[in-house]
């Protein structure tokens, strides 16, 4: 039997994201990646946390589990460790993963369990109406930081690299083809594969919309970036201002 993109899609209902939301790209790319790999949707478990992006499992016709805010990673690890034959994919937000659930992010990397981790990085808590997330820029004004955020953002890719993550990538919601390609490699990777997805929140983070990213993203795979060099990967991860590297930053096969 061969699978078509629509076989992965619970198409009787439409996603409830805002028009233009970056999560649509994640949804389309994931569907495409699974289809390209011809993975039986019944062998896929998508575990969401709680947030706008974390609702994605609702619209995938796989085994879909919406867990608790911050706890998608340990829940997914339990699924994978209990049945290693399953393809287990986590979809969670930056609040989910880098805020309330940061401890799990680090320890899952140490554990190197064979799951795929997709983090929607929109700089805000979308679902609770736009407060600053741990990746929000210093000075950013949000309802919870009306006079501007006082401190610098977390750098999750640098954190992942220094914690020993063997598959560290950055995707961008404005480039669904690249995203699908990264997802395919991540799903096939033997170990924890992590993709941070730059994802404009068109409602609550208008300063960092598509126009902001469009001119800054640089696909590392179109440069001479040596993906197996940890120090170069860290260097790329630390470049966040003028040009923002996307693609695979670091890859260390078993």
């Amino acid at each position: 039997m061969s699978w078509l993109p629509n076989d992965y899609f619970r198409d009787q209902r439409k996603p409830n994201w805002c028009p233009g939301c970056g999560n649509y790209a994640t949804l389309v790319a994931l569907r495409q990646a699974l289809c390209d790999l011809q993975i039986d949707p019944a062998s896929v478990v998508i575990v969401g946390g709680i947030g706008c992006g974390a609702n994605l499992p609702y619209w995938m016709d796989t085994y879909s589990l919406i867990a608790l805010h911050g706890r998608a990673i340990p829940t997914a690890m339990g699924v994978k460790l209990a049945n290693p034959k399953l393809h287990v994919i986590v979809v969670a937000g930056d609040g989910d993963t880098y805020g309330i659930g940061l401890g799990h992010f680090i320890h899952a990397i140490r554990n190197d369990v064979n799951i795929t981790l997709l983090v929607g990085n929109n700089g805000v808590y979308g679902l609770t109406k736009g407060q600053a997330s741990p990746t929000a820029k210093k000075g950013q004004m949000t309802p919870s930081t009306p006079r501007g955020l006082l401190y610098d953002p977390l750098n999750p890719l640098a954190l992942a690299i220094t914690t020993g993550c063997r598959f560290v990538a950055r995707g961008y919601a404005g480039d669904a083809d690249q995203l699908a390609d990264l997802m395919k490699q991540a799903i096939n990777f033997d170990g924890l594969a992590y993709i941070d997805i730059l994802q404009p929140c068109v409602k609550y983070n208008k300063n960092f919309g598509y126009p902001y990213y469009q001119d800054r993203v640089v696909d590392l795979q179109k440069t001479a970036h040596p993906v197996q060099n940890r120090m170069m990967a860290l260097d790329a991860a630390l470049r966040v201002e003028e040009k923002i590297p996307t693609g695979i930053l670091f890859l260390e096969p078993k």
């Binding site: 867990a67 608790l68 339990g78």
Partner: peptide
């Protein structure tokens, strides 16, 4: 949460 994930599986 891990135990719940395993129970689900």
């Amino acid at each position: 949460n891990m135990a719940i994930g395993a129970g689900y599986a």
